[in-house]
Simulated assay, not measured.
Amino acid sequence: MSRTVYVNGEYLPEGEAKVSIFDRAFLMGDGVYEVTSVLGGKLIDFAGHAKRLARSLDELEMPHPLAEAELLEIHRELVRVNGIDEGLVYLQITRGAPGDRDFVYPDPETTTPTVVLFTQAKPGLADSPAARRGMRVISIEDQRWGRRDIKTVQLLYPSMGKMMAKKAGVDDAWMVEDGAVTEGTSNNAYIVKGNRIVTRALSNDILHGITRAAVLRYAAEAQMEVEERDFTIAEAQEADEAFITSASTFVMPVVEIDGVTLGDGTPGPRARRLREIYLDESLKAAI
């Protein structure tokens, strides 16, 4: 069946959706995006995603084409018409197609952004087999641009990282810069030492994860220590546990790093517990 998608104020069959070839996201990667998970037909952490979207737009001096309430209405309508019980809603806002190709972008007051949303059904998103077995990761050099805190559509190097992991026969890659782990290709990275959760502090070097913020809050409430600092691959390999967080994987245990098995090679108790807490609390707060 064809999905219904949203393009610039219209709900359309996906086969009828069109965007100009002069759109700056197509020509320049000039756009931002958010991905909101759907569980039980409801949106997870929508307010956090809307807030980060606004920040990304501001950092790129792009107009805000829709208010948060309007975005919420569109998300809910797409979930409804596409019958999404478990899955994702992808939202992308670009600077639009103001004219012919030019490196210099126009005054935001005279620009009409392009707004696109679509859904992806992901049955079994909450009860993931990967969460039961744990992920294996490799380390790669972080070669991205310096503003990783802005959630842009410039995803070529993360895609290359995913492919490096696939060719190595593992699940994902952790990126390393100046000897320290920054983050995964599409997720924030953590290690566990005793009762302490260690993850890189927020800066321009990493994405300010919405799931990250919630998980660190739940960890503190569960009497786990939280330490925000850099860590190396060698330190990670000596950790008791490791895990990642993202909107589409929630809390996902990591059981192997660069061929070194963590613990007994199965998901650790703190990662499992944080996943349980996150899913329980998120479903209670879902809208």
Rank of each mutant, 00 (worst) to 15 (best):
V153G: 09
K193P: 03
A130R: 15
G209F: 07
R144F: 08
S186H: 10
G146N: 14
D142S: 02
A219K: 00
K122N: 12
M160A: 09
E183C: 09
N204F: 11
I206N: 03
L117P: 06
A220T: 13
P158M: 03
I210N: 06
R200Q: 11
G184Q: 01
L156D: 03
I138M: 06
M175N: 10
S159E: 05
N187I: 00
A165K: 01
Q120T: 13
A219W: 00
P129A: 04
N187A: 15
Q143E: 12
E225I: 02
V137Y: 00
Q143V: 15
A131F: 09
R217K: 15
I138R: 06
R217N: 13
A201M: 06
G184T: 05
D127E: 15
E221Q: 12
Y218N: 00
R136Q: 11
R144I: 04
V116K: 06
G124S: 06
Q143M: 14
R148T: 10
A213Q: 13
M164A: 13
G134E: 01
I210M: 06
G194L: 04
R148I: 04
M163H: 14
E225G: 08
W174F: 14
V192H: 08
K193S: 12
S186T: 12
D127W: 03
P158H: 04
N195V: 03
A214P: 03
R144D: 04
V137A: 02
E183M: 06
M164L: 15
L156T: 10
T182L: 08
W174V: 12
W174L: 14
L156Y: 10
G161Y: 02
D172S: 02
R217W: 04
L155S: 02
H208L: 10
G169D: 01
D178R: 15
A126G: 11
R196Q: 12
S128N: 14
M163N: 13
